[in-house]
């Protein structure tokens, strides 16, 4: 693996930020839509039939979980569809690597940008649900920092898939087989400890479950020692996978 330069990565991040600035409101609105629909349907619709989960009103339980999925989608869309269009159709990477930036800088810049979008989407969503009175602790102020970590994690995973993805059509598989099941089985809509032991063990292996667990604890002020392991899990997985997209993208772009 050739070394990336932090300055080079920052330059590519800056390009993305420059472009994003102008489509910011629309783009944010679209990425919001999905979690908000879930919030309305589950929180108010389904919630009307449920009393409480673990002592929490269902709306509070779901909303504090959906914050994390909003953040996940922010990073995931950036590093799947957006990155692929930039790389394959727009040939933006081909242009940038003729400058002092190299492939590694571009990939790392894209991952950092994915994490940034994750923080943006997650935080704005957090502010929206706070209006429903679901945030109960000042520890919630740490959630954006958590989303920087989880954003890096989801960006690294998505970018790895993008680097080996033969065609834009295959992102459907990424979403159908990875993102959607994770969305359903990571403790967003129901607590994992209510499930058979093997299911909650399987869920523990999914990246999103750790984000949900930690973000909810921060929003509600119920942080315990075990939450430390969620953070460690994310950091270890992110660090371990980080070289993958960088190496695979070089292999793809430089023959």
């Amino acid at each position: 693996m050739m070394l990336f330069s932090l300055k080079g990565a920052y330059r590519f991040w800056q390009r993305n930020a420059f472009i994003f600035r102008r489509i910011f409101p629309e783009s944010l609105a679209v990425n919001f839509l999905e979690p908000v629909i879930y919030l309305l349907a589950m929180g108010f619709g389904l919630g009307a039939y449920l009393s409480t989960i673990g002592g929490l009103p269902y709306l509070v339980f779901v909303a504090t979980g959906l914050v994390s999925t909003a953040a996940m989608f922010g990073a995931t869309f950036e590093c799947t569809y957006n990155a692929y269009v930039q790389m394959y159709y727009e040939k933006a990477y081909d242009a940038v690597i003729t400058t002092p930036l190299n492939v590694e800088d571009v990939v790392v810049g894209e991952i950092l940008w994915g994490a940034t979008r994750s923080v943006l989407y997650g935080t704005v969503f957090l502010i929206v649900v706070a209006a429903f009175g679901v945030v109960r602790s000042p520890l919630a102020l740490l959630i954006p920092a958590l989303f920087m970590v989880s954003g890096l994690m989801f960006s690294v995973i998505a970018m790895t898939f993008t680097a080996v993805n033969p065609s834009i059509d295959y992102f459907t598989f990424y979403f159908a087989l990875f993102i959607t099941p994770m969305f359903m089985f990571s403790g967003v809509f129901f607590p994992l400890d209510a499930l058979p032991a093997w299911v909650s063990t399987a869920a523990w292996l999914t990246p999103l479950s750790h984000v949900v667990s930690l973000a909810r604890a921060l929003a509600l002020g119920t942080v315990e020692g075990r939450h430390m392991w969620d953070l460690v899990w994310m950091l270890v997985v992110t660090a371990a996978l980080f070289p993958l997209p960088v190496v695979l993208m070089r292999r793809r772009l430089v023959k």
Binding site: F18, E90, D94, A95, L101
Partner: peptide, 27 residues
């Protein structure tokens, strides 16, 4: 300075911004 065989201009940017952003890559 490189002119690649395919045009690799940034369609999300204006004509002028294409040059400005590119200049940033050179610090």
């Amino acid at each position: 300075g490189v002119v690649t065989q395919d045009n690799t201009l940034d369609s999300a940017l204006s004509v002028r911004e294409n040059l400005v952003i590119f200049a940033r890559y050179f610090d």
